[in-house]
Amino acid sequence: MNEAIIQVDGVTKRYGTLAVLNGIDLSVPAGRFAAVIGKSGSGKSTLLGVVSGLEKADSGRVLIQGHDLSQLDEPQMADLRRQTIGIVFQSFNLIPSLSALENVLLPTFFEKEGTAADRRKRATDLLAQVGLGDRMHHRPSQLSGGEQQRVAIARALVNRPAILLADEPTGNLDAETGAGVLGLLLDMSRIFATTLLIVTHDLDVAGKADMTIEMKDGRIQHGNA
């Protein structure tokens, strides 16, 4: 088995008096596709937030490629996210004032290696790969939901991250579009040899995963690999 690229040890998280994560232990090996399933309020999305470093755990530790997130300051955390983690959201979260291409370029903004032209080529190639080669200068408002999620996938992958986190990526899409987007997500993570941790309530999606983590009331109910 590959070494764990995501390691979660005894993580807890409370919102006020509500315990959302109750001592989560999780290990995802590099290159694997893991699906977190569970009902609404089970804590699966919060778990993804903690793994991304955008949500702080109250206790326990999260290691990403061996880096303990609690030991990183804000700039180091930003560096880690930019270089190692790509995130795809349920509601796409594109910047509305920017074009699809500019949205994809956002994570490359501070890259010191390569030229601006290289970065732009990488972004345009990615947009072409997700089927938006002819719509890269459109704004999000000019794109359909499925197209926006494709832009979001391209943005998440533009820095070739080792980890791709997806939070209900098909939740805002109709079934057909959702299936297309999911297929793209899986294909792209395979092409880029990315570890994929996806939060979903869709059991069909979970069925395609290498490992499934079922959550209930902030605990891992069941996990298989």
């Binding site: 991304s52 955008l54 804000e74 700039p75 930003a78 560096d79 996210r81 930019r82 270089q83 995130i87 959201f89 979260n93 594109l94 910047i95 956002l106 994570p107 903004f109 501070f110 943005r155 820095n159």
Partner: peptide
């Protein structure tokens, strides 16, 4: 928050 998520440091 999106900018933070794609790796922009706050400064």
């Amino acid at each position: 928050a999106v900018l933070q998520a794609v790796g922009w440091p706050w400064r």
